[in-house]
Design a binder for these strands. Structure first.
Lengths: 224, 224
DNA sequence: AAAATATTGTCAATTCATTGACATTCCCTT
DNA sequence: AAGGGAATGTCAATGAATTGACAATATTTT
């Protein structure tokens, strides 16, 4: 297996492949060709083959791909064969919702603790975990060998918390705060900017409405 | 203003521009050059100018961009000058968390109702809105001229709900269910696949660990 | 066992996105 | 009011991602 960098465009598609292959596997499908997968997933067969070949050949010429094998390999590429210990920082609505979302566990993302700076929340239990004060953050991460931190705190405090985390040995931050975090090399950040996503939806709605209505130019003219 | 299609790559960057410009505006910054913005945002000045010019020239040669004006224009492009009425379908952890997230209102995304199929939730209030039974969905959307539906339901029921929505005049679906929805033209779907995002983070953590450790090839060899 | 068929892996072509370069235009100072 | 300086808008060049094409190779059938 070679060492060349895989583009994030490819990585971004892997989870979707993984999902479809998992479903096919559950349905008992044993083998699939890139063309069949293409039909199901609405991407070109060429792209599918190109994507998989970034990681070496998983298929058999004249046969196709073994679903269960491919599923497992992609899982391995994504690092899902290993478990990850995560903590949630910020026990607001979103933090608590994510803490209660048990599906992540099934993929090896283990919920190990939740923190907040609001004393009135200390001790409250979420999935049998007490909400802990922020003061305990660093020690907890080190003692429990936490890999990942989920940031569900207001943007104002996110940068500071990220800075604190960067000295703890944490490997990745799943950032729901609406800021760009600046972290040292070796710490990965994955942003989930919900409001950005909602704005994109607003744009696309807007655009499709303008496309449908005849004479929309005049509307635009109005606004000087 | 011309009618040519703008690439989603560009659209995807607009919310981030919007955020930075909003912050600059709040700080009282009046004008900014593409180069200054480039330094702040870590994208090339050329890309910034190219992006803005998709929508016509917002700047002044020799001067730069007026922050407040540019902010407003991008908001307009994103459709944030209009209000959007949204409902949430699925009053589980995530649905309730989003319902309680008041920041969306500030951008004109108005929370108008929340639905669930669990009778034990009917009547429970969230931000002074009762949780409604799914049976009332179609009538409610039509009577209240709802634009957007937020889908925070399990994947099993998402396709069916999307089908029901497609007959109501809804314009967009913000989809948190882990499936690809198939909707008619004219209805926009924006997916938020949290587990995909988490897998990407897992991949990048994994990759960076392999890069750092010398002799990681031998680890790969082990697995036959 | 050989021929026919299917499908990958990969190279080349194309399309799309980003970056670089610079003429043009406007601001600002003198 | 005129000239120098600054920064846009835009075109061209580069680079990245996607698609198309096909030789190589395995499977399946006869």
């Amino acid at each position: 297996m070679d060492n060349k960098e895989i583009s994030q465009a490819v990585i971004g598609r892997l989870p979707r492949y993984f999902r479809f292959l998992g479903e096919l596997k559950d349905e008992g499908v044993e083998r699939i060709s890139s063309q069949e997968l293409s039909d199901i997933m609405n991407v070109t067969a060429s792209q599918i083959r190109q994507d998989f070949n970034n990681f070496g050949g998983f298929g058999q010429q004249g046969y196709g791909y073994n679903v269960a094998y491919l599923y497992e390999e992609i899982g391995r590429i994504l690092g899902l064969d290993k478990t990850h210990k995560l903590i949630i920082i910020g026990a607001g609505n979103l933090g608590q919702a994510l803490a209660n979302y048990t599906n992540f566990d099934r993929r090896g993302f283990l919920f190990k603790g939740i923190f907040d700076c609001d004393p009135s929340l200390y001790g409250k239990k979420i999935r049998s975990m007490e909400i802990r004060p922020m003061e305990e953050l660093e020690d907890f991460v080190k003692e429990n060998e936490i890999d990942m931190a989920v940031l569900t705190i207001p943007k104002a405090s996110a940068a500071q918390v990220a800075r604190r985390l960067s000295h703890t040995g944490i490997r990745g931050i799943w950032n729901f705060a609406h800021v760009d975090l600046d972290v040292p090399d070796g710490i990965q950040v994955e942003n989930v900017h919900l409001s950005d996503s909602l704005m994109k939806l607003a744009y696309n709605i807007n655009r499709s409405e303008n496309q449908m209505l005849p004479g929309f130019e005049s509307q635009l003219m109005d606004e000087k």
